[in-house]
Amino acid sequence: MNDVADIVLGGAGYAGLFRAVDEADAQAGIAAAWDAGIRAFDTAPHYGAGSSEERLGRFLRSQPRSSYSVSTKVGRLLYDDPLASDGIDDFYGAPKRSRRRDYSADGVRRSLEDSLQRLGMDRVDLLLIHDPDDHQDQTLAAAMPELERMRAAGIVAGIGVGVNDVDVALRFVRETTIDHVMIAGRYTLLDRRADTELLPECARRGIRVLVAGVLNSGILADPTRRATFDYRPAQRDIIERAQAMERICAKYDVPLRAAALQFPRRNPAVGATVIGAGIKTEIEDTIAMLNTAVPEDLWHELDRCT
């Protein structure tokens, strides 16, 4: 079995992020992660308008509940909507549902109840506030106290935030009692903004950090054919830096994506890496990249590209 104790399977890929994924391929992808030894899974109502939770739940219901951990998120409620169009927020093949932001205490309770129903579970292990960037004051005043109450009552074991913005994460780290932070795209070979304050602050406070978006939405997988950074076309300087990193990796016969996937694991402040692979071939490739030897000299050369 692979050494994947610090790896979490993210739930956006098999829920149709960027391209539709049918049920059979989604189940095969989750099964491939399970067969590789992955036992931690992150999902959210936002991913595929609930299909991520539903698909994950269908797979996990045949596994002993004590053998895995699941995190999901609050902040978006789902409503049946026959007029919902395909491709909203880059999710394709999703159910006909619309998303509405809600960071109230009632919204947190309803979101968790709905998620548990979609998952077919009686509990999740970790509950994260999803993308509160434009709703920080309401989240701090209403959603956060409700999560703290849930943790105190034993409804969930851990609470935190899942964001792309370092400053937003830092505010919640400093003003609340969260025990987890999921930071996406900000601790990668290309973008190390989380390393300046966020990771050291979390380490001092004993907050577990989960690093997601380590391929920066595609460019670190293939900077020539997938020049997408932060879910939009990458700027020229970003493309050139990624291509320079790819050339350095080629000197050592190491794929760029191997270095990108392993990069967060080198920092002791990082508790886990969330991978975005969604189908079987991607997951198998990700596991192979995580097991690829990366020479220390290569890391030193990549550090000079920042």
Rank of each mutant, 00 (worst) to 15 (best):
D222W: 06
R205Q: 09
F229V: 00
D179R: 04
M182F: 13
L199H: 06
R205K: 15
S217D: 08
G213I: 06
I178E: 09
I183Q: 13
V173R: 03
E175V: 01
A203D: 08
I207E: 02
V209I: 13
C202F: 04
T228R: 15
M182K: 06
D195H: 10
V181F: 01
T176A: 08
I183D: 13
D191F: 04
R226K: 15
S217Y: 01
C202W: 05
R204E: 15
G206R: 04
T188S: 11
D191H: 08
E197V: 13
A203S: 13
L189M: 04
V181S: 02
I207R: 03
L210Y: 15
L215G: 01
T177K: 14
A212W: 13
P200N: 09
V173A: 10
V209K: 06
D191N: 15
A203F: 08
R174N: 07
E197W: 13
R192L: 03
R192Q: 13
N216I: 12
R192W: 04
R208K: 15
L210A: 11
V214L: 08
R204W: 12
E201M: 11
H180D: 12
V214F: 14
I178W: 11
L198G: 00
G218S: 05
A194N: 02
T196H: 05
P223F: 07
I219D: 06
V209M: 00
T196L: 14
T176S: 12
